[in-house]
């Protein structure tokens, strides 16, 4: 096997392939999904949808698929992970590719808006003004698709990875770059959400990209990073965000979810905890 890396969706994607498999198909897949689901590309289908004044519209099969997974993630996390926070993420300063994000002097003041949306087949129902953000979900969804189509053995998109190799072990890094834990993932997925990465300052306070829909602000949590093992990378990504937002109760919540195989969290004091289902290597 061999590995190749490339940039896509604002992160580094590392693809592990059988020796004879070319990587360009995975590159093309990531590029194609980015053209449709990115909120940083003005011409993307997602941005056209977000700008539209229509409440009901038909979307492409690919966008409908990603929205369906996002809807599943919203249901499984009790609404904690909801793409409808797109407007809030942008208002808090993350309205451009992360390398261009700058600090804000004041926190945003936004009127409460309706965030209900649904997708049925190719039809999207969404109140005007609700901006959808598919960032993490789309990344995981693409990694899932690449592996399910057997375009690659392992796809690691900025730490959100999907594998079909039975001996895959993931080393989870702490904020210092040291290995906090090693987890056996095997044929499955692992995703990590962190409040340390993609962070900036708003009114001289630490802000990050994981918005808590309950408060409309970056989640206040004692967890620095949460890693979730699940069957699919898109759901692992949603699970990791939910654990992070739930803070002290995150591990207990994850322990009760049958779709989550295991969780590792790095606490604010540097402690590392895992649920008992986690196969720590």
């Amino acid at each position: 096997m061999h590995s190749e890396s490339f940039r896509a969706m604002g992160t580094t994607v590392t693809v592990t392939l059988e020796d004879t498999t070319p990587s360009f198909e995975v590159r093309n897949l990531f590029g194609h999904v980015e053209q449709i689901c990115s909120r940083f590309l003005d011409h993307s289908e997602l941005n056209r949808v977000n700008r539209s004044p229509q409440t009901i519209m038909d979307v492409s099969p690919l966008l409908a698929d990603v929205l369906a997974v996002a809807n599943t993630a919203r249901r499984l996390t009790g609404g904690l992970v909801d793409p409808a926070v797109g407007q809030l993420v942008a208002a808090w300063g993350y309205d451009r590719t992360f390398s261009e994000v700058t600090d804000l002097d004041e926190p945003p003041v936004l009127p409460p808006t309706e965030t209900e949306w649904k997708v049925e087949g190719l039809r999207l129902y969404r109140p005007p003004g609700v901006h959808l953000d598919l960032g993490g979900i789309a990344k995981g969804w693409t990694a899932d698709l690449a592996v399910e189509l057997e375009l690659a053995t392992i796809v690691n998109a900025g730490g959100d990875l999907r594998s079909r190799h039975p001996d895959t072990i993931v080393d989870i890094e702490d904020p210092n770059g040291d290995i906090a834990a090693s987890v056996h993932v095997g044929d499955g997925a692992l995703a990590t959400s962190s409040v340390v990465k993609r962070a900036w300052m708003v009114a001289n306070r630490h802000a990050h990209h994981i918005i808590d829909p309950r408060t409309g602000a970056p989640g206040a949590t004692p967890i620095l990073s949460a890693s979730v093992v699940a069957d699919q990378a898109a759901l692992a990504e949603a699970g990791a965000k939910a654990v992070l937002l739930l803070g002290e109760e995150g591990l207990s919540w994850a322990d009760e979810q049958d779709w989550i195989r295991g969780v590792v969290v790095i606490w604010q004091d540097g402690s590392v905890y895992a649920t008992t289902g986690t196969r720590v290597a």
Partner: peptide
Amino acid sequence: PAPVRQRSAGS
């Protein structure tokens, strides 16, 4: 015999 190691630091 030969685990495939990956890294994850969060996004």
